[in-house]
């Protein structure tokens, strides 16, 4: 597991039934591109978050393939429809096989 990886998500606590909300996500990760060299001139191996998904009550909202050109601490913002109360599940997939998960509940206002 890469060091110091911490997922953060920002989801409103409530929404209108069928309403639209904005979700922001950020995960602390160095996103080593595989293009850099260390002091001895050896290539530092690629180590990135390569995929991010967001689902709500088992249905997909967004599924993102990330490449090394995504900045350190990957930030992704998007909009979701909230048909009913339930849970958002966020998943980040690391090159090293680690999977980081976060979830947020939302109520209908």
């Amino acid at each position: 597991m890469a060091k110091g990886v911490k997922p953060r998500v920002k989801v409103p606590k409530t929404a209108q039934a069928g309403g639209t909300i904005t979700i922001k996500t950020l995960i602390s990760h160095k996103m080593e591109s595989g293009q850099r060299k260390d002091k001895e001139g050896n290539i530092i191996p690629r180590s990135i978050i390569n995929r991010f998904t967001c689902d709500f009550n088992g249905q997909n909202v967004i599924d993102v393939t990330l490449e090394p050109a995504i900045s350190t601490n990957p930030f992704i913002e998007f909009e979701a429809t909230v048909p009913e109360a339930g849970d958002f599940a966020f998943t980040w997939y690391d090159d090293d096989g680690s999977v980081y998960e976060e979830s947020k509940s939302i109520a209908i206002a």
């Binding site: 110091g4 953060r8 920002k10 950020l26 602390s28 350190t72 601490n73 930030f75």
Partner: peptide
């Protein structure tokens, strides 16, 4: 604060 990546270090 959410958009500010410096706040990750603050949380840590």
């Amino acid at each position: 604060d959410f958009d500010n990546p410096g706040m990750i270090a603050v949380e840590q």
